[in-house]
Design a protein around this nucleic acid. Structure first.
Lengths: 329, 329
DNA sequence: TTGTATGCGTTATCAG
DNA sequence: CTGATAACGCATACAA
């Protein structure tokens, strides 16, 4: 393997000079800069990132913490978009990025988790899909041992930023749109997991909307499960006018139930997953650009790693209707 | 940061002794071993993998090379399963694993690609979804600079293993099953991408099956595209008896077309993606355990990294029928 | 069985 | 502007 030493010899300069050229230090004459870059070309030299990390003591290594949906693979696209967006930005920012699933760390206490990330030379973490009642992750954030960006959860401190769309507003918008496109004032809201911040936000939005528009709101907990949503719809949808769901998957479950019952009720979802195009009926939903959310999260993490302090970042969303013709290709 | 030096001091032994204990060297007395482990506990010491890699010159870092489907997110679950399976096994085998999308390397020549992976300290690569006509990747494999495991492509050399299910047999089986469950001998086969090894295997299987069972085989190229398959079905399915597809997505496209035409033809797919449960009609398909394929690929890569020579590994598959009731949860 | 010394490929701090 | 040289944290051949 060709090292910086070989380059120095080839260029007829000192090792440190090569290093300076490589890292774009000021105070290097154009002539030596040229000699070095030429030598690098000739020898096809590749800097050893491992050695660089060891020497400079900054790893630039970040981790993506993701929850793998063992059963509902229908929403794998969300995580895939997260990964894709993050990797793109990580490359742009010259960050080394690894993917970690919750399953790896789920039984660890704070110390073990810290140890784990440290041993991986991780200096920054992007947390996706964090539960509200995950005490260990909360402590990890509070410990401020790592720079952290939390997606869709409002944790902020010196070393932690929060990022995501405005779930309150988005839920408000999509529900309002669906309601105003149809008639009726009895709303069935199928909510997501209780221990989730976004669920609380969305419920709050529904309550505010109901108050403002004088709707009768009936809330049931669907836990983001298609089956639960289906059962809820089977049981309660008949004497309601409109079904609003906290996720697309639940919207699909509810819609399928309605179709089985052979009655029609407008249904709206949340997320904009591709599957929405396959269920036969068009539905309103909130389209999140997950890849962008994730890219921005990494960007924010990079900011933290450069010494900036944590903050809250809001990203845009849009309302869409998804139908088969649009998604097939 | 607490280093091995601190541990040595705390335990009252030499650095090298600590290292030996940490790496389970023989010839270390139980007493010193105990002293060291206790010191490690007390100081909450975490070995620095970066330094270890630099020192030992072996990184244990591998890369997953994946093709992200920008448009057909419906099959993101496949890549997700690949990632998940690989990460699990990588952790088990103590390998550091990064994910790389084709988009990153697609315009590189051999030298740039080698440089890229080298700079990332990558010593092994698992290649998913490789095109037959990807000359650069072919050269990369031939160069044997890295240990490589190729999924679903039969490249084998000293440092390269091939892994995957037997696509020939699987296609043969699922087609035969579908045909024997129904009547008719005019088969429309919608094939996948031309430049793909698995497509060739599957076509060969269909040809052999047709010869043996005296079927009339009509082949069209669907490029793994749902829309193309749809159009092919719209055009040719009417005067055929059975539609066999090289992928689930194409099977779904064909099935939707048949439903739109309001005629029924048995359709079978290939892969076992979750979406198959959402289209309303049950179809036969080949169920691949993608997570397992990927885990085995990493396992095989680990074998190569340990000095074994490349080989061909065949994994099992099974035939299933997918319906909504089974996948909802 | 344990300790000493050297080197891995960089970066960073000085002195020149 | 350039060049020695000392870290960085660990592994390992070799000496004891």
């Amino acid at each position: 393997m060709v090292s910086i030493r070989d380059v120095a010899k080839e260029a007829g300069v000192a090792i440190s000079t090569v290093s300076k050229v490589l890292n774009n230090y000021p105070y290097v004459s154009e002539s030596t800069k040229k000699k070095v870059t030429e030598a690098v070309e000739r020898l096809n030299f590749v800097p050893n990132q491992v050695a660089a990390a060891l020497s400079s003591k900054r790893s630039g290594r970040i981790a993506l913490l993701l929850k793998l949906n063992m059963k509902t693979q229908a929403i794998d696209e969300i995580d895939m978009q997260y990964i894709s967006g993050a990797l793109g930005m990580a490359r742009e920012k010259q960050l080394d990025c690894i993917t970690v699933f919750y399953s790896v760390i789920e039984k660890m206490n704070l110390e073990e988790m810290t140890r784990y990330f440290t041993s991986q030379s991780i200096s920054g973490i992007v947390i996706f899909g964090m539960d509200n009642d995950d005490k260990v992750l909360q402590k990890l954030i509070e410990s401020q041992t790592f720079k952290i960006v939390v997606v869709d959860n409002p944790y902020v401190n010196e070393n932690t930023s929060a990022i995501g769309i405005d779930h309150y507003q988005a839920q408000y918008d999509v529900a309002w749109k669906t309601i105003s496109e149809n008639t009726g004032n009895k709303i069935l809201y199928i909510a997501g997991m209780r221990n989730s911040f976004v669920t609380e936000e969305k419920i709050r939005a529904m309550e505010d909307l109901s108050k403002k528009k004088k709707l009768k709101l009936f809330i049931r907990n669907g836990d983001f499960s298609e089956l639960k949503a289906r059962n809820i719809a089977l049981r309660y949808a008949k004497n309601k006018d409109i079904v609003v769901c906290g996720s697309d998957l639940m919207a699909i479950g509810a819609m399928k139930a309605l179709m089985d019952m052979d009655i029609f009720r407008p249904v709206c979802g949340f997320d904009g997953i591709i599957l929405m195009g396959y269920v036969g009926k068009q539905m309103n939903t909130v389209k999140q650009d997950f890849a962008n959310v994730s890219a921005e999260a990494v960007c924010e993490l990079n900011r933290l790693l450069s010494g900036s302090t944590g903050r809250n970042v809001r990203l845009p969303h849009k309302l869409v209707r998804m139908k088969y013709e649009d998604i097939i290709c």
